[in-house]
Amino acid sequence: MRKFSEYNPIVVAVWFFSVTGVAMFCNYPILMAISLVGAVLFFTVRNGLSHGREHLFFWVLFAVLALANPLISHNGKTVLFVMNHNPVTLEALLYGVNSAAMIIGVLYWFRSFTQIMTSEKLLYLTGALSPKLSLVLSMALRFVPLFGRQSEKINNAQTAMGLYKDDNIIDDIKGRSRVFSVMVTWALENGIITADSMEARGFGTGRRTQLRHFGFRAGDIVLLIVTLLLLGVTAAAVGTDSLSIDFYPEINIKAPDILGISGILSYGALILLPLIIETEVRLKWKYLRSTI
């Protein structure tokens, strides 16, 4: 009864890296299409119709990437037309579209990944690797915005005292650089207090543990196993060249054998997993509400 994003971060991360890993290490067009469609679908299911600007940016980038390849690479047999004494070929165009689908698909996945992986989940992930690394990350996450806020405060204070004599860019830059230099002092000075506070609370007395904010539930384990299984089948298909394609000199796509077909189906299923989970949760809620 959890949304996909509420599953254990390790499971979610494994799923994300499986999906994007396959997309990045293979160039089979059907897999690319599945990845791209799945990524867009996943993003819109999570966000609805907002984020119009991001969509626009991604699709403009898609067009640029797809069209850049045939203009630069002139390999391929089938010449579509000649531009500035250079042939523009069908193969290069298709290759461009295929790689653009891969890149944009992965970009969409990572956009969703950053939405789901809040700082807390990242800390949990890094904490599983090393508690110390996780602490450093946590301190950085606190400190970076703090630094920004303090320099804004200093800047305001200096403005209200007349540090900036004139309203021009050079004076602004001079003022800003002075503010930056004092920010370094400030950071060191305050770092001492933070260090004292850490020391007083026993930092460095022994081996650190880390508070686990997320537990492993049965559902997490099931999802993890399913993810790894589907990934295994897909990877086997990709790795044994059951799913391969050559673009140059002419397009040579092998008809997939049984392993290839099951690879495609597994990848499709892998990408549908979160959507299935989300839909199931929604339906369950609806059902529960109707029985109340």
Partner: peptide, 24 residues
């Protein structure tokens, strides 16, 4: 402000005990 070490309230509360190696 300066005594706070981490970015989340719960993590700050746990910080001292984590240092002492107390179980989760």
């Amino acid at each position: 402000e300066q005594q706070i070490v981490t970015d989340k309230v719960w993590h700050e509360l746990a910080f001292g005990l984590e240092n002492l190696g107390v179980k989760s």
